[in-house]
């Protein structure tokens, strides 16, 4: 019966209202919901119940791999595979290797941060049910939205609409494929 309903969006007047609504919808047990606002809101991570991203660990590990890999590469190329004395310094002169070691560490962690962020966010993604809504375009201008996806275990078109209304949502709209 509800198969054609993909989700619900509700509009909020301001960022404070959105933050409070996010806390309530989190406490009500919804999981597959998202907040949309024209600018980042402090404290939103906590309000939507987001867990800490594992990205920091990934970047840290890749930084370690980058630095040790670059150091090993330089040691092997200039002290083992093709020994070359440069300005009378020892073959393994770690001082000379520091800039490249540092740079490769930064490069690898920057790549991990960028692509890891995209993958963890599920991006690139070309379409989302909220795009069916006409009013949703205002999220990048002057409005604040909460969207609840139909895939949420607690989702029920009628009850979820009522709930969104009770926490201050306006212009509640069912998202249908067109």
């Amino acid at each position: 019966m509800n198969n054609d309903i993909l989700g619900i969006i509700a509009r909020f007047e301001n960022s404070a209202g959105l933050l409070k609504a996010a806390e309530k919808i989190r406490d009500a047990g919804y999981i597959k919901f998202d907040c949309h606002s024209p600018f980042p809101i402090h404290g939103m991570d906590k309000a939507t119940g987001l867990k800490r991203s594992p990205l920091g660990w990934l970047v840290g590990i890749s930084a370690l791999i980058g630095t040790s890999g670059a150091l090993l590469l330089q040691w092997w190329t200039s002290a083992i595979d093709y020994p070359l004395v440069i300005s009378g310094k020892p073959l393994f002169s770690f001082q000379a290797y520091v800039p490249v070691t540092f740079a490769v560490g930064v490069l690898l962690s920057a790549f991990t941060a960028l692509f890891g962020m995209l993958i963890l966010n599920g991006l690139p993604r070309l379409f989302h049910p909220v795009f069916y809504s006409k009013q949703f375009a205002r999220f990048s201008d002057d409005s604040f939205f909460i969207s609840v996806e139909a895939g949420d275990p607690r989702f029920n078109p009628h009850r979820t609409s009522k709930f969104l209304e009770s926490i201050g949502g306006k212009d509640i709209e069912l998202l249908r494929a067109q």
């Binding site: 300005s87 009378g88 310094k89 001082q95 000379a96 520091v98 800039p99």
Partner: peptide, 12 residues
Amino acid sequence: AFSQYFLIWYGN
């Protein structure tokens, strides 16, 4: 600290 040391070490 390292930049200072590094350039002096390299220039020798």
